[in-house]
């Protein structure tokens, strides 16, 4: 087992999204001495709160001053009183550069989550849509299971049981009998198609236009290899 490639081993971590409650220390003036004194007073009132409390240092509301903000010094003041600054909230390029030097994470300024931060983020955003590999399923899709191929095609190489649901933003291909539901182009892509080797679906849908088994059953191509596409708000089923 030890000779296995690390990539073939069972995953040793998981990525999880989470919402955490954090305190934000919003600076209103560039005055480290005053901050030191006022923090000391607060820390005396609530020592438990200040003990190793993670905070975000917000500079976006700080009044402009003649001297440039010395972030390292402000951090030192915070740490002295037991606070643990995790990140910086700011949009000033000079402050962002300092944050980078100090290995501090950067948060978007309040009320501006949607705006890109600084020049670096703009460069990172991929302008060209690259190819997203299709989602390929080799095991039977059982009743009650739902498979969604986000922004891509879905290819199923086994049977899709009645009561199973296939969803794809792109096309759907099924190489076993298709007895469940297949919904292609669910984000509104009217060019999406559904291909199957044996049509026995409970429902076929492309971009919201659907046909149920009750109609599909009467089609002479029921049980055969077919493709389905959307033609002028109408589902067209043709032989493959």
């Amino acid at each position: 087992m030890n000779h296995l490639d690390p990539l073939e081993k069972a995953p040793v971590f998981q990525l999880k999204g989470s919402m955490l409650a954090l305190t934000i220390l919003e600076l209103s003036a560039n005055d480290p001495e005053c901050l030191d004194a006022q923090l000391a007073e607060k820390a005396e009132q609530a020592p438990q709160f200040f003990h190793d409390a993670p905070i975000i240092l917000a500079l976006d509301k700080c009044a402009p001053s003649a001297e440039p903000l010395d972030i390292a010094r402000i951090l030192a003041v915070c740490r002295k009183h037991g606070l643990q600054p995790l990140a910086l909230r700011s949009e000033d390029p000079e402050q962002l550069a300092q944050a980078k030097l100090l290995d501090l994470a950067v948060m978007p300024p309040s009320g501006a989550r949607e705006r890109p931060i600084g020049a670096t983020a703009a460069v990172e955003a991929p302008a060209e849509p690259s190819v997203i590999p299709a989602k390929i399923i080799t095991q039977p899709v059982r009743s009650g299971q739902q498979i969604y191929a986000k922004n891509t095609d879905l290819i199923v190489m086994a049977a899709v049981s009645a009561g199973a649901e296939l969803l794809a933003d792109g096309n759907i291909h099924v190489y076993g009998p298709l007895r469940g539901r297949a919904l292609a182009g669910i984000n509104g892509n009217t060019d999406a198609r559904i291909f199957c080797q044996q049509l026995g679906a409970e429902m076929l849908s492309i971009a919201g236009q659907y046909k149920l088994a009750e109609d599909l059953r009467r089609d002479p191509l029921w049980g055969k290899a077919t493709q389905t596409c959307l033609n002028d708000q109408h589902l067209d089923i043709s032989a493959l």
């Binding site: 059982r142 009743s143 009650g144």
Partner: peptide
């Protein structure tokens, strides 16, 4: 048969073996 199909789906996704990728 349909209930068995559902159970087969759960066996392949909700068991310890499935969760550990074995």
């Amino acid at each position: 048969v349909r209930d068995s199909d559902r159970m087969l789906g759960l066996l392949s996704s909700k068991s310890k073996r499935a969760e550990e990728g074995r």
